[in-house]
Design a protein around this nucleic acid. Sequence first.
DNA 1: AAAAAAAGGACGGATGTCCGTTTTTTTCTT
DNA 2: AAGAAAAAAACGGACATCCGTCCTTTTTTT
Lengths: 227, 227
Amino acid sequence: MNYSEFKKLVNLSKEEISGQILERNRNSIKVKKEKKVIDNLIRIIDATLAICSKKSFQAMSIRDLSAESGLSRGALYSYFTNKEELLVLIQTQGREIAYQVLTDQIAKGSDPLEKLRLAIKSHIYLSEAMRNWFYFTYIEARNLPKDEQKRAIESELQTEKIFIDIINEGVKEQVFRDDNVVLAAAVIKAMLQDWYLKRWKYRSRKVSVDEYADFVIHVAESILLIK
Amino acid sequence: MNYSEFKKLVNLSKEEISGQILERNRNSIKVKKEKKVIDNLIRIIDATLAICSKKSFQAMSIRDLSAESGLSRGALYSYFTNKEELLVLIQTQGREIAYQVLTDQIAKGSDPLEKLRLAIKSHIYLSEAMRNWFYFTYIEARNLPKDEQKRAIESELQTEKIFIDIINEGVKEQVFRDDNVVLAAAVIKAMLQDWYLKRWKYRSRKVSVDEYADFVIHVAESILLIK
DNA sequence: AAAAAAAGGACGGATGTCCGTTTTTTTCTT
DNA sequence: AAGAAAAAAACGGACATCCGTCCTTTTTTT
């Protein structure tokens, strides 16, 4: 699997994503017609991610968002009850998508090594396809309210657990070394994150997403595979 | 070298750091007595980093800073001309310290492998000793004014270049593999950053700084060393 | 007593949010 | 099918609050 195959494989329509958001937030969304809600959620989220790729969520005013999305301030407040809720809404959905896609893809692997490769590739490819979303989810997590911060942390650990489980499975089957599994998973995760946190760097160096994914797999195998 | 040896070796007194800041910002600091300036700069920076480990710099008001530092709002403005300058001041100094310590330590190594180990250890140990500072420098870089953002990017590339140079030296001496040097340096850097970006994770798992540094060295050697 | 430093009131501007009004869409009636 | 009535959605002015910064006054130090 390479990136262009991944994109065809994983169908991430904006309508579908906003549909999920609507389901999760029916009670705080005051507009009734589904089509209208989904259209406007797409505009709102696109606008938020666009603005927040340049400045922080806190620095983005509702007036900024109104200008970028083309909805009035009053209209915006029909889709969330306050600014913080908008942050929570996008973050929650971002984590959900990442988890869904990751577990879906891994399920296709039949042995630990294949699963590991799938996990690495699909995480990097997904963060490439949704770079603004991933960046936002990472960088704005600290501005979440306390209880939502806890959820973000749990999600991070959950993702890491996916890698830990794959590695442990490989240890049991004697394809991977039984050597600091938890740290191995942690540094793999760190490498995955670097792709969307430092995209400017890789882009300016003309490192393609496929090249990066292959390299991370190479590193992971160097640590894990029994010689 | 382990962490406690590093701390004795590298003498990072707050007075010294604030002294350097004073030198760099003599024209914008209105207070004349050096001792007073240094004392208060320490209080201001300590307070800023403490507050910003909990919320963003933008979310920190001058009133917050006043309360935490014990200086009045008016007094604060004797040490910087505006809030943004305070951000720039801390960031600049943070990058400076990191670069100084890193190059100082590396110079002690006599061969590429030793230099690589020294570079990894000193970066991780330094980020451990100054975790709030490193976290702040990383996370608030995006809120810098445009030209200072450029400086931050240059600094990041410069640090990475240190690793690239070490690896290239090793390639020439045929101790390291000649295989994607730039990406190797990039992922090493990503692992270094994870230590201060995700300290809560490593702490809760009781991973010590020495253990983490050794593991990163182990990974780096797995990628680089000729078998 | 003079100089230096700190204090904190005041001000203009920006922000999140509310809510009465206007516009658009849908439904109903003829 | 057309137009009126009702419902839904969007609008944007207004308000209270908070913030950065300035500047005069007070306190501390020399």
